[in-house]
Design a binder for these strands. Structure first.
Lengths: 233, 233
DNA sequence: TGTACATCAGTGAACGCGCGTTCACTGATGTAC
DNA sequence: TGTACATCAGTGAACGCGCGTTCACTGATGTAC
């Protein structure tokens, strides 16, 4: 009985998937501003009002795409870290950074959707938070693992300067094991990573940086070093 | 005779100014996507087609706003640097950084217009380049002045590692006097600065950083130190 | 100083477009007895 | 196994909106003699 029942449910799930797939395709091609429910329906051969059986509003669809983009980027980054040499902390950090950049360059409009200017009138629901956190958590995991293996040099910082805690409690708890100066640096490194990628994708390196690959790689290596990550041996 | 002639020209200049002013007001309030020639005309009490006497297209108006935003940010930053203690390089760097952040927070939509996701279908003409360069040039000037006054510690970098040149020739010439490692770091510091601000304005620090002012200040101080900038005495 | 002409600002209507969303409806698919 | 009913997917038309841009036009402002 439950199989029969799920026949309709399966069809429903399948068409919902087709709708978000097509929406993602149009997002990738034309950007978030051009995304319209009518166009999605048209591409799937259904009348615009039919789309409303599956999606309650345009914002609803946008939210789905945002979560999917965060998840795709997060998964891509996690896999890259997992594939890096486990006992080489700087290599793991670099793998994460290059994974983020690689995904962003391959999906510029999806990247812009989540890391560019906020869509006017749209407020991201809390449901997006876990997906949005994956890259940050992957980076923290690299640092924590290095620290637990004793592969984290104590961050120099300003000699003798106290490190106040600017972070939110939840995050502070996550990085409690790290030296405070390293934790602060790590958040800055995280923003620098996305700053580099956004500047590249949004055209601000034109006339500034000639060799983007090498520049990015050098910047990230320097950051990894400044964070205290050291290769084995 | 030329005064009479310029009567009409003055009127023209005045109304052109009113149009861009109103456009900027609407940009600040609703964002670039909501900016429309019709709405601007309406607010000024003119019919939409009349606006075309002064502006050749919507893209034309957008370009004007972009240039004005870059110029406003650039001028604000330059003044802040000029007002900082001239013999204190880190203080000058911090003044520049805080000026950029202050302007961005005061004009979030204008900031998003130039540093957020590119407007779909819009291609910035070359005319925007000089205005867009002003913040970067201000930062370079701080470094060069410090260097010429011997207030720039040699950047540690990776010991013994050669520093390849990833920069475009025009920029490389500008920073030719700086140690290569410092120049490379400086470009990364420039992207980090905007990365920090974009993350703050675009909502990515929610749940991450509690005290944004202190976090930003600490990050920029660290960067200034890493760049080799040292206070006098 | 006055007149004929050219320039320009602003009007109002229109073209053509696409959008999000609603609503009453037809048919098909599933459910209960 | 068969019938009466409920659920749901998809249709087609419509509402109401706003946009960028063009075009023939009226009147006012400036120019040349």
């Amino acid at each position: 009985v439950s199989t029969v029942r799920s026949a309709r449910e399966l069809a429903r799930a399948e068409i919902t998937r087709q709708i978000t797939d097509e929406a993602r395709r149009q997002l990738a091609e034309h950007g978030a501003a051009q995304l319209s429910l009518r166009a999605v329906g048209r591409a799937l051969g259904m009348v615009s009002s039919a789309v409303y059986r599956y999606v309650s509003s345009r914002d609803d669809l946008l939210t789905a795409l945002i979560v999917q983009a965060y998840d795709a980027l997060g998964a891509h980054t996690e896999h890259a870290v997992a594939a890096a040499p486990p006992d080489d902390p700087p290599a793991r950090w670099l793998a994460a950074a290059h994974a983020v950049r690689g995904w962003a360059r391959a999906h510029p409009h999806e990247y812009a959707l989540v890391y560019g200017s906020p869509v006017p009138g749209y407020v991201a629901p809390r449901a997006t938070v876990p997906a949005a956190s994956r890259v940050g958590l992957a980076l923290i995991e690299v640092l924590l693992t290095a620290h637990h293996h004793g592969a984290l040099a104590t961050s120099p910082g300003h000699p003798g300067q106290a490190v106040p805690d600017h972070l939110e409690p939840d995050l502070a708890a996550l990085v409690a094991d790290l030296p405070p100066a390293t934790a602060q640096r790590a958040v800055a490194a995280w923003t620098e990573l996305f700053g580099l990628i956004s500047f590249e994708l949004f055209g601000h390196l034109v006339g500034v940086v000639a060799d983007r690959d090498a520049f990015f790689d050098a910047a990230i290596r320097r950051t990894a070093h400044d964070l205290g990550l050291r290769p084995p041996g």
